[in-house]
Design a protein around this nucleic acid. Structure first.
Lengths: 216, 216
DNA sequence: TTATATAGTTAGATTGGGCTAACAAATTTA
DNA sequence: TAAATTTGTTAGCCCAATCTAACTATATAA
């Protein structure tokens, strides 16, 4: 068996960091997975041996095409699962990450392909992140941050950038969901708090919140 | 984390063997899991240490109430999954065992409880085996073997005793499914082959097949 | 009832994935 | 540019789960 859960978790983290910065460093992997640096070091060597990474001592890591593809398949499983749990099993978008973290390691591709089919080949998961296709292609995110928008703009909430259960619960409490149209009324220059309007009422959103909302 | 997949697999096998013979021996566990005897020996000690088994050197093993309950929860996950895959995802009954073997190790009980709810709290899985409740109760099988029936009896196929993909495919090819009414026409004394009638046609079923069909 | 076969156990090695402690390279910053 | 900090590496250990080889009980059969 070539792919353990451990290997898959490393690959996923590395893939995600490669999107942000192309070069990946060992320390950030260690932090993301909450393991020690030596653990990362030895796993990185193993992944390199499997042709999933390019590794040279003391140099930044690079993920290979093979590694990228394998990571995409894991992320596909994760995001299809999240979508299925929300759409077909009635879970809330704040409940599904945890469950999908476990299900993404299921080997059977038939299982996920059937989910995909039942869902009608969705392009995005419940948090607006793109779902890789069964051939490993993944759409590039092309949304703006709400925090980069100006007063008087009218935008639609399309996705979230750094989610967590708490953040999702906060959004629930504010009635914010994907697809909601938001008008920017005012930006406070000092702390970048935004006063916005949606669903017929006004809200003040902090800079922290606005930096996690992707709109178009 | 107290329950690894390995522990769960041992427990499941031990539970199943305890149904058949109450006392369980090490060798049969080793065969079922395809591991060596020393591996079983050390795992058995660990399970005993966890209070799931009673173990004394050179004596037959006994599963404790705690062990039985934990095994029931794993089997519940397995059988609910099989039912869900067949009823809600369109898989054939010969495809689901493999997938359920993996899904049964998912921790989230909410996931399985939701399946249960969506399925309407089914009592049996697609192969007629009872599904333990969320509190760990499991219905006792009270069917007869088709091979124990006599000519002129009219029985209904209720469950299967020793399934495999090949056996299920064979049943598919013969149009045999749970709920089918079968009339026993003749039993050949020499080899116990049965001539039966169902769905408007006659078939001859071997003793091997008849010994795997549970009827009432 | 003794010999043999079977079942169970122990000792010790191996592999995967993790750790700490100690050290080396690279990068920052004074 | 030299010193200090951060980042990456190596050595060596641990634990879970497996294995083989060697041994001990128990059960079976001559």
């Amino acid at each position: 068996m070539n792919n353990s859960q451990s290997i898959e978790n490393y690959l996923k983290v590395i893939f995600n960091q490669a999107i942000a910065s192309d070069d990946v460093n060992t320390t950030s992997i260690a932090q993301a997975l909450e393991v020690s640096l030596p653990s990362v070091n030895s796993m990185v060597k193993k992944l390199a041996g499997m042709g999933l990474l390019e590794y040279e001592k003391y140099k930044p890591l690079k993920i290979t095409a093979k590694g990228r593809k394998m990571a995409a398949m894991i992320i596909r499983k994760h995001r299809l699962t999240e979508m299925y749990l929300v759409e077909k099993m009635g879970f809330g978008w704040e409940e599904v990450h945890e469950i999908a973290e476990q299900l993404e390691h299921i080997q059977s591709t038939a299982f996920f392909d059937r989910m995909d089919e039942i869902l009608g080949y969705p392009e995005r998961d419940p948090h607006g992140s793109p779902i890789p296709t069964s051939s490993g292609e993944i759409a590039t995110q092309k949304f703006r941050l709400l925090s980069d928008c100006q007063p008087e703009e009218l935008v639609t909430l399309k996705a979230l950038s750094k989610t967590s259960d708490e953040f999702l619960k906060y959004l629930n409490s504010k009635g914010l969901a994907l697809g909601v149209e938001v008008e920017i009324l005012e930006v406070e220059p000092y702390d970048k708090n935004m006063t916005v309007s949606y669903g017929g009422h006004k809200e003040v959103l902090s800079a922290l919140v606005c930096s996690k909302l992707l709109v178009s």
